[in-house]
């Protein structure tokens, strides 16, 4: 039910208000305030100072210094994002890789989720564990494992050579293929689990009803299964797409040194060039880009809650 059915705010006790306040305080302290700081830095200028940007906010100086401080802020950093093709190509590359890998994850993840949901009850727990199990190992270690698997004399090439599929070992590491392998491997559970959740509680009699009304099984898949799994498909896709856009570790460790994803560019600006204002501007724009799918995701979730499923 919607909050409208709850007692009105004035009827709430102080204890209830405190409980409601805690998550808001948390969000303000650890999300809103840091974001405002980043946003402020993005409006500053690079300087050889400590910290490496100007102006510095001095709240003890009174109104005059505050006005001076505001007048020194500028959107110059954002203008540079547009003028320098490095940023645009990084954003473009990130979106393209995120889009392509989300599509791959969907094509791979849906059948897995479908198979899990159709498996006998007593197996489903085991299959669920198998999907979740990789999370028990550090993400970084798993990416390093892929580095050794994909390297020139790695496990993959040894297997291909031994099976006689290739004569000369192909190059995997430092290619886009390696990035896709890493991303699809890492994010697969985020695609499988939401889809599985929607498929798992689907009433088997719906498919019998479809068959009863003259609809063959393959057609019922498109007319019944897919529309009903749509909330899970959208949730899974956004759950993958959003973090993949900002992905840093996988392209940095598995990808080549040529074209960069936006996460790498951000890292370079911050740690390589020590240009905090530029890095902050990159981060703010990235957030603005991801707001669209985030709001979409919220919308889908809210509609599901409204329907009560």
């Amino acid at each position: 039910m919607t909050p409208a059915t709850q007692p009105r705010a004035e009827a709430r006790s102080w204890g209830q208000r405190l409980v409601i306040l805690i998550p808001y305080l948390w969000l303000i302290a650890f999300f809103l305030v840091p974001f405002l700081i980043v946003f402020k830095i993005s409006l500053s200028q690079y300087a050889t100072a400590q910290p490496p940007y100007l102006p510095q906010l001095d709240i003890t100086g009174g109104f005059e210094t505050l006005r001076e401080f505001v007048s020194e802020l500028s959107f110059a950093g954002y203008a540079r994002l547009v003028s320098d093709s490095l940023y645009l190509s990084s954003y473009g590359r990130s979106l393209a890789i995120a889009l392509a890998s989300t599509a791959m994850l969907l094509v791979l993840g849906f059948p897995i989720a479908y198979g899990m949901a159709r498996a006998p009850r007593q197996w489903q727990g085991v299959l669920f564990m198998l999907i979740v199990l990789p999370f028990w190992t550090s993400f970084l270690i798993r990416v390093y494992a892929w580095m050794t698997i994909l390297q020139r004399d790695g496990l993959l090439n040894q297997a291909l050579l031994a099976l006689g599929i290739v004569d000369t070992p192909p190059v995997w590491i430092s290619t886009d293929i390696a990035i896709f392998i890493g991303i699809v491997y890492t994010y697969l559970p985020f695609m499988v689990l939401p889809i599985y959740a929607t498929l798992e509680r689907m009433d088997e009699s719906l498919f019998e009803a479809a068959a009863d009304l003259g609809c063959p099984r393959w057609k019922a898949f498109w007319l019944v299964t897919v529309p009903l799994a749509l909330p899970g498909i959208i949730a899974g896709s956004l759950l993958c797409f959003i973090p993949i856009v900002g992905e840093f570790v996988i392209p940095d460790l598995l990808g080549g040194s040529g074209a960069m994803m936006i996460g790498q560019t951000l890292w370079l600006e911050f740690f390589g060039n020590r240009d905090w204002p530029a890095a902050s501007a990159v981060a703010v724009v990235l957030l603005a880009l991801l707001i669209v799918p985030l709001v979409l995701y919220q919308h889908v979730q809210a509609r599901r809650l409204e329907r009560g499923d």
Partner: peptide, 11 residues
């Protein structure tokens, strides 16, 4: 058939 659960397509 009319199903006990009705099996109406929710979408």
């Amino acid at each position: 058939m009319m199903f006990q659960s009705y099996a109406l397509f929710p979408h």
